[in-house]
């Protein structure tokens, strides 16, 4: 063996190293969730900005007619779900970084519940718009 090759002396099995999760008990799932939702939001929010050019200054009947179209309702629901999912994952990182001690867990739960409820509210609003548009009101 060459003397210049680094010599590793570590009390850890090669299997433990290969599994790789260590004391964190979780892998890179959170990181991926943040990136994938971010990438999905690029086309979704671009679509929303374009729609806002159609809706700026619109009255109630026009908004209902717009929201009742299946493609619009689908894109809107997808945008809402992805937005609040991304917000949940992102705000969680901020809370993990800046909120310590006893306040950490309640704050994190608050973020989770708050973003989930906002997402649900948005989706039900879309459903109601579709129903409203179908009944011609």
């Amino acid at each position: 063996m060459n003397a210049s090759v680094p010599h590793i002396e570590v009390m850890r099995s090669q299997l433990g190293r290969a599994r790789g999760l260590g004391a964190g008990h979780s892998g890179v799932g959170h990181w991926w969730a943040e990136r994938v939702s971010a990438a999905s939001l690029l086309p979704l929010s671009t679509w929303f900005v374009v729609q806002m050019f159609r809706l700026g200054g619109a009255d109630h009947a026009e908004v209902v007619k717009w929201g009742g179209k299946p493609v619009n309702a689908t894109m809107l629901a997808a945008l809402i779900i992805t937005t609040f999912y991304h917000a949940q994952v992102g705000l969680q990182v901020i809370v993990d970084d800046y909120v310590h001690g006893k306040a950490h867990l309640p704050t994190r739960l608050l973020i989770k519940i708050g973003t989930s409820l906002m997402g649900l509210l948005g989706v039900f609003a879309v459903i109601k718009l579709v129903v409203r548009s179908g009944s011609g009101k």
Binding site: G67, T83, A125, V126
Partner: peptide
Amino acid sequence: TAGAALGVFWLGAAA
């Protein structure tokens, strides 16, 4: 995120 919440309220008002 706060703006998106306001957007949801706007959508809710339309609904």
